[in-house]
Structures are given as C-alpha cells and as structure tokens.
C-alpha cells in the first residue's frame, strides 16, 4: 500500500478508536486543525513504525514537526528512500 494510503487509513482507524471526529483528509489540512490530539499523533507514529519499519522522527535529528498533512506524508515518503 502506498505510504499516503497507509497514513490516511491509520488516521481514520485511530480517530474511530478514540471516537474523535476529524476533518476530511487532504494534503492542505493543517494538522493542528485536523481534530487529532497529540496522543493520536503519538499512536500514529508508533503504528507507522510497525507498518513501515522506520520512524523518521528518530533518525532525522533536529526537525520541526510537519504542519500540514501533506508535509507529514512527504516526511515519511522522503524517509523511505
């Protein structure tokens, strides 16, 4: 499954588990306005590490957290190379 789809489906799964209503997922969506809280992002990063086998936050040193969902997807896509 492409990384983008993996991320989108995990976000929807986590939002459903946490009973959180989220905005429609699109690249321009600001993560801060997505409806996901920090615990949801923490779970997302942990599950992505299990699915993809890597955690770009752990390996990329001093980075700032992505601002939009598109940034977030790109961050994982870049780290896969």
């Amino acid at each position: 499954m492409p990384i983008r789809l993996t991320i989108f489906s995990l976000i929807e799964q986590i939002a459903a588990e946490q009973k959180i209503k989220i905005q429609p997922l699109r690249d321009e969506l600001l993560l801060s306005e997505s409806g996901l809280d920090s615990l949801c992002f923490a779970i997302l990063v942990a599950r992505l590490e299990d699915k993809l086998g890597y955690d770009p936050f752990a390996t990329s040193g001093d980075i700032s957290f992505p601002v939009t969902l598109g940034d977030f997807v790109g961050f994982y896509e870049n780290a896969s190379h």
Binding site: L39, I43, F57
Partner: peptide, 12 residues
C-alpha cells in the same frame, strides 16, 4: 515504553 517524538513515550 516505546520512545515517541510526540509524547516522549508511548505504551506498547
């Protein structure tokens, strides 16, 4: 615990 960039650690 697994280290986590958002919450410092998370439960697994």
């Amino acid at each position: 615990a697994r280290r986590n960039p958002i919450t410092g650690a998370i439960v697994v």
